[in-house]
Design a binder for these strands. Structure first.
Length: 343
DNA sequence: ATTCATGATTATTG
DNA sequence: CAATAATCATGAAT
């Protein structure tokens, strides 16, 4: 409002200058031929320039008088109409937004990952944690899974709070702009349609911010997934017994190290790993052995000896049973190292 | 910090 | 589908 006054004053100043600056004979002739209207314009300019000298109250009063003029509503609607036809028609039609495939994709993914879906957070996460705690089988993966769920819940919470913040900011800002426009619509031609359009623009801006949020949330979920669901990242070496058993089998079947499905199952059970882990192990072992037999020679000898010693020690284990001090860490019968056997 | 060992995954082949 | 070869990502040793 103050700005408007100043601006008008400035324009008035410009107008005055150009009028005082008439060195052009043409404009002089025009002035003379136009006659009476020119006189009016001069008056108006005088009035505008005088505004700066008026007090605020006076200006307010003048504005009020204008607002109350009986022609005002009609003039206003005409102005709105003209504006609608000129300015707004330029970028009128193509504003129907096609549902952005990008944001659809993000939405779908967030929904699929259970980030933006129905609230199944606190209760079931706690339940999962409890189940994992009660389960007690450590390499079941349920602990990892509950950890994953917890992290996912965390992400969801952040996502929702951010989203809410954005919503709030958006509606706040929209309200502000609408109030502003409504206020201004008393002094300049703003149609309701235009306000609507403005709101749409604001919403588009905010939704692009939301898309960024969704995108980074998706990213976080992807990282989380790869962190927890990609087994490579939680690789644990098999325990010593397991490697023992596997190596034993491998080197005792060195001519044909391809355990049958049955043998794999047996090995898996003995080692406390899955069949596919056994398959992985043999796959890796074969290729790595083949690639560099020399490197594995020592190991091969060792296991050859070991199997021989094991066979010889079947009876010895019975005699070991009456010795109470067996400092074996595992509960397995006999690691039974006798590295003196240098064959 | 770098290097090696190792379990898992991916692409390819038959 | 299973075996292979290459590669990834981590754990452990240096």
């Amino acid at each position: 409002m103050d700005d408007q006054t100043r601006m008008l004053a400035g324009m008035g100043g410009l107008g005055g200058l150009s009028q005082a600056d008439v060195g052009d004979p043409d404009s002089v002739r025009k002035q003379q031929s136009l006659g009476q209207p020119q006189q009016d314009i001069g008056d108006i300019l005088q009035q505008i320039m005088a505004i700066t000298d008026e007090s605020l109250d006076e200006a307010q009063a003048r504005k009020h008088a204008l607002n109350c003029h009986r022609m005002k509503p009609a003039l206003f609607s005409v102005l709105c109409e003209i504006k609608e036809k000129t300015v707004l028609s330029i970028r009128g039609v193509q504003e129907e937004d096609p549902p952005d495939p990008q944001i659809m994709r993000l939405d779908n993914m967030l929904l699929a990952e259970g980030v933006s879906g129905p609230e199944k957070g606190g209760g079931s996460a706690a339940a999962a944690a409890a189940a994992a705690a009660a389960g007690g089988s450590p390499n079941d993966g349920s602990i990892e899974h509950s950890d994953y769920r917890a992290k996912l819940t965390q992400i969801r919470q952040i996502y929702h709070s951010e989203l809410e913040k954005y919503e709030q900011a958006c509606s706040e800002f929209t309200n502000h702009v609408m109030n502003l426009l409504r206020e201004q619509s008393r002094t300049r031609p703003i149609s309701p349609k235009e306000i609507e359009r403005m709101v749409a623009i604001i919403h588009r801006k905010f939704s692009s911010i939301q898309m960024q949020l969704k995108q980074s949330t998706c990213e976080a979920v992807m990282i989380l997934r790869s962190r927890f669901l990609d087994a490579r990242r939680k690789r644990r070496n098999f325990n010593k017994q397991a490697t023992e058993v596997l190596n034993e089998y491998f080197y005792s079947h060195l001519s044909n190290p391809y355990p049958s499905e049955e043998a794999k199952e047996e090995l898996a059970k003995k080692c406390g790993i899955t069949v596919s882990q056994v398959s992985n192990w043999f796959g890796n072992k074969r290729i790595r052995y083949k690639k560099n037999i020399g490197k594995f020679q020592e190991e091969a000898n060792l296991y050859a000896v070991k199997t021989a010693v094991d066979a010889a020690n079947v009876s010895a284990q019975a005699s070991q049973a009456n010795s109470p001090a067996t400092p074996n860490s595992g509960g397995y019968p006999a690691p039974c190292y006798t590295p003196d056997g240098r064959l």
